[in-house]
Design a binder for these strands. Sequence first.
DNA 1: TCTGGGGTCCTAGGACCC
DNA 2: TCTGGGGTCCTAGGACCC
Length: 434
Amino acid sequence: MLFALVDCNNFYASCERVFDPSLAAVPVVVLSNNDGCIIARSDEAKALGIPMGAAVHEYAAALKRHKVRVFSSNYPLYGDMSGRVMESLSQFTPDVEVYSIDEAFLGLDGFPITELPRRMQNMRDSVRQWTGIPTSVGVAATKTLAKLANRIAKKYTSDGVYMMTDPVLMTRILGDIAVEDIWGISRRWGERLRAMGIKTALQLQQADPQQIRKALSVVGERIVHELNGISCLELEAIQAKQNIMSSRSFGRLISDRDSIAEAAASYTARAAEKLRKQNSLASGIYVFIRTNRFRTQDPQYSNAALIRFDEPTADTSTLIAAATRAIHQLYRPGFRYHKAGVMLTDLVSDGKEQKSLWRLDAPIATTAASKRRMAMLDQVNAMMGRGTLFHASEGVAKLNRQKQPDTRKPDWHMRQQFRSPSYTTRWADLIVVR
DNA sequence: TCTGGGGTCCTAGGACCC
DNA sequence: TCTGGGGTCCTAGGACCC
């Protein structure tokens, strides 16, 4: 069995180019929702050294100097283009897993191996011709290796297709790839592996799977097997989402409760629409609000509530009513809020059993952790007034995991007993740092 | 001034049961 | 005050992905 990973090159920037030929061969970037940061770059923009996720304000001068064409994001357009690309791919094989808006895995069962390079080349050219979107194709024995092959295709080939099938060549390639560049290994795990002396993909491939499992759980072990050509990740069918999220930063700081509730209501309406589109019902809604964590000079507050419904629902007004109640419960005066969001959770889709049965009787229940934070915050506010940066650690779990101790010198420390919903006594530490 | 918006999976620990 | 062995279900949180 072989897998292909097809990845659209610089997808959002390429989409903009499809509709404006004057953008060809000039640097193009696409911005995030509030035009806050850069989320897509054409090759020319990458060559200028503009990093992914860069804050626009930091690069405003450079963008201007190099005459970079800058676009606000247009998600309906990108979604539509993505659909066309996926549709094109399905002309070549029915085994298509849409992995993200700009990527798909293909199962290549039934393709004669000798013909594969030509077929993949043909597919890539056709997608380009039918949609205007350039892609890269990586082929290998497992999804993880196909991901790496795709990198090679993008970086080093002229035709955008790379088959990683030669074992000798593969050894050389893996030796040149840093562990963090493997699909599924990011910074934290990369650090852990490096501490174990594993720095390259080749070293991880040759590592003891059991040892890796100890360090990185079964997820890490799977990666080791995948690097060895033993497929642990199958092609997955498209399925209904398990959660639907809608959140935004406000674009300015908001202090009054009703404006936040209004924002939450509109997020909820958007999420409810998506919910109905996939024919699901929500069993709960998770609502969060937060201050701007980048403004360290401001007092910080973030909290979340989870509301369960007696009956799963897709009714917009029910959902909005719940979100509004949650905001009222979470809101604390004296803070300048930056972001809020809702997540419809534990969705019930047609024919599918609901995953869990809720035992909580209360019509509204914030999460236990949320209740504790709330109680502590209120207490601290009462004792000290506002304008305090706080840091809370709770429960036994975190202690046992030996989280890095906070080295900032606490001004004030409180240990609080509380009762969880089941009336088991637990404790929480609250460290107040000015 | 400004620093996104979505998702998934896995595990530890606690509640609860026999 | 200390004390078992087996199990399941649930939640929160920590990782990861694009």
